[in-house]
Design a protein around this nucleic acid. Structure first.
Length: 478
DNA sequence: GCTCTAATAT
DNA sequence: AATATTAGAG
């Protein structure tokens, strides 16, 4: 809670507002809109010289959008009501975020809040959160007060600042052979807004670029390094610090590694819980010491089904001839809600697929494992994408290339009792005691996805498992 | 004070 | 789901 009106950028005067900020306000409620416009003009966000008025109002989101599209670069900031017929505030927010990346401020409608919620408090928070998650820069609750509007310029400044400093690492999709350039460190600043009252928290430390928080993306390269490090260290000694050192990746933090490690271990744990055991770096049999006994032997149910990006949906029995694969870009929070759907046909119903899977199981395990054996997932053995090194599915894999993949694999081995079969369409090499994959029959959909999504075109190779228990597979698509 | 890890938040 | 952040224990 600091002093509200810190000096705006250029003019040193503490009380001057950036004259001529180009604001577009959208609200379907005419009276609100008028009020808003009046206030905005009082802020001197008004038209000065440019052809287009500096304060522009629209009572329909679609018109606002049209205006924005036609006049890119003609606006600095957008204020939008939440509830509107047609395109609502959130939607507008998304679109604007994607198409022109302007700061958007969401205006909360008290009517709406009352309406929707039994008690306004919660839903308010929810709404605010939703707005923020969708990329809103701020959230102002109606009735909007002049004081609040006076400060919206800060978002524009922040955005500009953000653009300057961070060289815009936006499209880091398929990039990078250079292991690490998606790394950008950021300390965040808690920025929020509030309900009925007031708000301005402008702690000017220095680095609160409220813009976007770039998160580290664990690319395949990074992950490989990570896995490498772990292999070198051995499971027991693999702690964040050491891994970090071994990875030798500038910009990467221990926290990054720790977080990833946590996930990695979860994967291990899951696996090992299923197997009851796993091999450590010495090839020795390890009992995961700290294994919570509570971990189910197999979580085939809902949990496992929707692992990783492509979200598969099977009928309860897995009988669908077609499965729906849904995906969406997760690049930026703004893309929330944008997802497309494609379909992929299955050669056979899952339950008829010829799954080759052997594992020593005891009779007592029969119940759950039995089910698993009918529908093993790639992930059941080595694959949580974590272990397979198959991280980071790129959007490009979706769609046609995805459908084009005709892999059909059987999971056939693990240390105990499972073995691999030679196969026509791919080469494989199996490490001693390795987990292996071969392509002899068919594979549950999930597994196929794991593999297919690794592949954009032509062949690819990937590793399954780590250390001595790993396998490298090279697939060749006919 | 630093590191690790589990838990929790975004 | 994937990462980040936090909190408490060593």
């Amino acid at each position: 809670m600091g002093n509200p009106d810190t000096a705006p950028p250029q003019n040193g005067g503490g009380d001057e507002f950036p004259v001529g900020l180009r604001v577009l306000a959208v609200d379907d409620d005419r009276s609100c809109l008028l009020m808003l416009e009046t206030l905005l003009r009082q802020c001197r966000y008004e038209d000065i010289d440019v052809g287009i008025g500096r304060v522009t109002v629209k009572d329909k989101a679609c018109e606002a959008l049209e205006l924005l599209r036609k006049n890119k670069d003609q606006f600095d900031i957008v204020l939008s009501d939440v509830i509107m017929p047609g395109i609502d505030g959130f939607r507008l927010l998304e679109i604007v975020g994607i198409e022109m990346d302007l700061p958007v401020i969401i205006l909360g409608d008290s009517h709406y809040l009352e309406h929707v919620s039994v008690m306004s408090a919660d839903s308010n928070v929810e709404t605010v959160m939703k707005g923020i998650m969708h990329g809103a820069r701020d959230f102002l609750q109606k009735p909007i007060r002049l004081e609040e509007l006076k400060n919206i310029w800060q978002h524009v400044v922040r955005k500009k600042l953000g653009e300057q400093s961070g060289a815009k690492g936006e499209a880091n999709n398929n990039n990078s052979n250079d292991d690490n350039q998606n790394i950008r460190h950021n300390r965040r600043s808690r920025e929020d807004s509030n309900d009925g009252d007031d708000e301005q928290n402008d702690e000017s430390d220095d680095d609160h670029l409220t813009s976007k928080k770039p998160r580290l993306t664990w690319t395949l390269e990074l992950h490989s390094k990570f896995i490498n490090a772990i292999n070198q260290l051995g499971v027991s000694k693999a702690v964040p610090k050491r891994i970090l050192d071994l990875m030798d990746t500038p910009g990467l933090t221990r926290e990054n590694v720790a977080s990833h490690l946590q996930k990695y271990r979860n994967g291990l744990r899951k696996n090992s819980a299923r197997m009851g055991q796993f091999y450590d770096d010495n090839g020795g049999l390890n009992r995961m010491s700290g294994l919570p006994p509570s971990i189910p032997l197999l979580s085939f149910g809902e949990q496992g089904m929707s692992r990783s990006n492509p979200i598969e949906r099977f009928g309860v029995n897995g009988y669908h001839n077609r499965s729906v694969i849904e995906y969406g870009s997760t690049q930026s929070p703004v893309t929330l809600g944008f997802s497309r759907t494609i379909t992929q046909s299955l050669s056979r119903p899952l339950n008829q697929q010829n799954i080759l899977l052997r594992h020593q199981i005891t009779a007592s395990q029969g119940g759950q494992l039995g089910r698993m054996m009918q529908h093993p997932r790639f992930g059941d053995f080595a694959s949580s994408s974590m272990l397979s090194g198959n991280m980071n599915r790129q959007p490009e894999f979706h769609g046609s290339s995805y459908m084009r993949s005709q892999f059909s694999h059987d999971i056939v081995s693990s240390q105990t009792g499972l073995r691999s079969f030679p196969s026509h369409d791919h080469q494989y090499k199996q490490c001693p005691n390795g987990i292996s994959v071969s392509t002899s029959g068919s594979l549950p959909q999930e597994a196929r996805n794991d593999i297919a999504s690794t592949n954009a075109s032509g062949s690819h190779s990937f590793a399954i498992g780590t250390g001595p228990s790993s396998l490298e597979v090279t697939d060749q698509i006919p």
